[in-house]
């Protein structure tokens, strides 16, 4: 464990907490894409298949349970909670995410570390996470005004993978046999997808204005 990875995990945890806060405090999920939340639930379930077989550390196990539990809870809330579900922007959240699922799965069948069920699903979860934010970014552009908590959620979600890139650089420099090309390349693509969001987020922060994404 290094400071970059810890910072990344904490930032990721903050993004989940911000989203839970928004949903429970405002009883609203306006501006949040259910499709992105469902993709993230799939990412965590397919990535943590080793949850009960490989014990890395208490921290690792607890964080996996938190991410799986929170992502499923958010999907449940947005689909079935009688108050929250009314504020879901159903007509704006129309990204055809089957394409993302299909492409990621095909890519995982071709590019993986070992051709085992666990490794193929792990690679699938890495590729899927890289593009899982797309429905959310499209929804933010369509809904125009971005409420603070939704904006902060996306900001922290993007920042966490940037910390992980620093972590991979650090591990590559300090550990001889460390190579995680699948994670690194996907992580770079994932962070790049946030680039324009970060730019407009910074501008809105500098001008102390509401976050406006160009349609």
């Amino acid at each position: 464990m290094n400071i970059f990875r810890l910072a990344g995990d904490m930032t990721h945890l903050i993004s989940v907490l911000v989203l839970l806060l928004k949903i429970y405090a405002t009883k609203s999920c306006s501006g949040i894409s259910l499709k992105t939340q469902e993709l993230y639930a799939i990412v965590f379930v397919t990535r943590y298949l080793d949850l009960f077989t490989d014990f890395i550390s208490l921290y690792n196990t607890v964080m996996k349970l938190v991410f799986i539990g929170s992502s499923l809870a958010i999907v449940w809330c947005m689909r079935y909670h009688r108050v929250v579900r009314r504020s879901y922007d159903r007509e704006l959240d129309t990204f055809r995410y089957w394409i993302l699922l299909g492409v990621s799965f095909i890519l995982a069948l071709v590019l993986h570390e070992k051709f085992t069920l666990q490794e193929v699903f792990w690679a699938f979860s890495i590729y899927l996470e890289a593009v899982a934010i797309l429905p959310q970014l499209v929804l933010l552009q369509r809904s125009g005004n971005v409420d603070n908590l939704a904006g902060q959620y996306v900001f922290f979600l993007g920042a966490y993978r940037a910390f992980y890139i620093l972590n991979w650089i650090y591990r590559y420099l300090t550990e001889q046999r460390f190579t995680r090309w699948i994670s690194c390349v996907s992580g770079l693509v994932q962070t790049a997808l946030y680039a324009d969001f970060f730019y407009y987020y910074f501008i809105s922060w500098k001008n102390n204005a509401k976050l406006q994404l160009p349609a």
Partner: peptide, 10 residues
């Protein structure tokens, strides 16, 4: 030897 494919990252 521990294979480096053990996923110790989240």
């Amino acid at each position: 030897t521990q294979t480096d494919s053990v996923k110790d990252e989240l």
